[in-house]
Amino acid sequence: MITFHSVSKRFRKNGVTKHVLIDASFALPEDRSIAVLGRNGVGKSTLIRLIAGTLSPDRGRIMRHRRFSWPIGFAGSFHPSLTGAQNTRFVARIYGRDSGALEEFVQDFSELGAFYHPPVSTYSAGMKARLAFALSMGVDFQVYLVDEVIGVGDTAFRRKCAEAFRQRMDRARVIMVSHSPALLREFCDAGILIEAGRLFYFNSVQGAADAYEAVLAKPLPA
């Protein structure tokens, strides 16, 4: 579903440079849903954002053969001066969807009510997240990217998110970062482990989880 060609990516946090990937080349299979494992701060979120395309590699190329969502709940791509409806239409246009149908779906799903028509700059963080979630369900992506959250909002809305997400899974795939083994086992059937700038692929979530336990006990030399 996605191919990395000698990709390098590092990021700086608190003055420390961290290498997430060093000259990594790999292809992820189209028919699997993949759990992403790795120690804290190793760059799981960075990997998800590289796959989404919201981050660019320092070196190398990433080729996408499927339509990937943005990380679920990520609301950073809304234009603050456009309304919820206008942002929805913008997304419909760039992904070649029917504006009217998407607008209707999103207005209904997001439960924004009267707030659908004022600019996004007037939204609370929760409202933005609901809009973003509704949009990513409405666009019908082929691969959904999950960074810890599969639902947003209050308990009731979260349940609705999870339900919608499960429904999508009968025709879409997922790449998921989560600290919940139950969630990973429910949605994924393969795993990758990031460690020391490298990426290891496993044919089962269990295989990746075992390797993860191993590097927790004894990290690979960088």
Partner: peptide, 11 residues
């Protein structure tokens, strides 16, 4: 002015 929209990979 369009920076947020750049996080859509197609833009």
């Amino acid at each position: 002015v369009n920076r947020p929209l750049l996080s859509y990979p197609v833009v």
